[in-house]
């Protein structure tokens, strides 16, 4: 048998071209699901074949927010909760650029919740990927708007007294044109879904459930990251096309995943152009200077 000589060049990963390799190692914990989602995002970008100079990533603050710092695209790591409005400005100023927003559940739907609902309502052409690890990972795992009722976190030691959001239902209700939920286990389906979402014109939304073994998993006896993935495997049920209000996250019984919404609707830019074209008549303010001209 012929043994191939080891190359003198350092090994090249197929996704290195999309990675700021000089910034690796990353900050994510062993077993964290964000890296899996990051891999799926890069896979989807490669699969889409889109011009990398016409693609940008915007993130907020938190573990997922760091993704913008590792991807070799024009990338913007903004303030906590404000990734969507920043991305709105970027997209409207540069309509030829496809803008991905990647952030965590707390960033996008607690502190940034107001921006989320309005961007979906306006149908701003953004692909928003929410990595949902059920808690605030970076600050040590505190209770988030995604934390299941009764789950233990450092700010809900007796169990969370709050009901969490169904993010997919919220996104759909606000007018998102594409809504899907997958888990860090469903890598191939997730990658396909990101590609699909990127191809949509308008506000597309993807929720990805991920393990957070260092915080949420540890406090809620989820075991290792692998155990969480097994849990996803055992509990998740694919139900494409169902009404997202019925796409429940019932951790005791079943986790509903799938593509729930895939519709067409004019984007903000479509409507802005149409409305202003229709209105293109003399401005209410007289455009000529008034008064008598100097002789």
């Amino acid at each position: 048998m012929k043994i191939r000589k080891p190359s003198k060049e350092p090994p090249v990963h197929p996704k290195d071209s999309l990675l700021r390799v000089e910034r690796i190692p990353h900050i994510w914990c062993p077993g964290c699901g964000i890296g899996t989602v990051f891999g799926a995002v890069m896979g989807a970008i490669q699969k889409s074949g889109c011009d990398l100079d016409r693609l940008a990533m915007v993130s907020g603050i938190g573990c997922t927010g760091r993704m913008a710092g590792y991807i070799r695209l024009d990338s913007f790591h903004t303030t906590h909760g404000r990734a969507i409005p920043f991305a709105t400005g970027l997209k409207l100023a540069r309509p030829e650029t496809k803008v991905l927003v990647v952030s965590g559940d707390g960033d996008l739907l607690a502190i940034g919740g107001n921006h989320f609902i309005h961007a979906a309502r306006r149908n701003i052409d953004l692909t928003v990927i929410c990595v949902n690890n059920l808690n605030y990972g970076m600050t040590g795992g505190q209770q988030a708007p995604s934390t299941p009722f009764g789950a233990r976190t450092p700010t809900s030691v007796a169990g969370s007294p709050e009901e969490p959001f169904n993010f997919c239902h919220l996104a759909a209700a606000c007018g998102a044109v594409y809504v899907a939920r997958w888990t860090a286990l469903h890598i191939r389906l997730l990658t396909n879904a990101i590609t699909e979402a990127m191809q949509k014109r308008g506000f597309s939304f993807l929720e990805v459930l991920t393990p957070c073994p260092s915080s949420f998993g540890r406090r809620n006896k989820m075991g290792s990251a692998l155990d969480t993935l097994k849990f996803y495997h055992d509990r998740s049920v694919i139900r494409n096309g169902i009404d997202p209000r019925d796409a429940l996250l019932d951790y005791d019984n079943q986790i509903v995943v799938g593509r729930f919404v895939d519709i067409e609707r004019p984007t903000f830019t479509d409507n802005y152009e149409a409305v202003n074209l229709r209105h293109a008549m003399p401005s209410p303010e007289p455009e000529r200077p008034q008064g008598r001209r100097k002789p």
Partner: peptide, 12 residues
Amino acid sequence: ASMAAILGASWG
């Protein structure tokens, strides 16, 4: 949001 949006637009 207004302030965040103008920053985004400026980078655009």
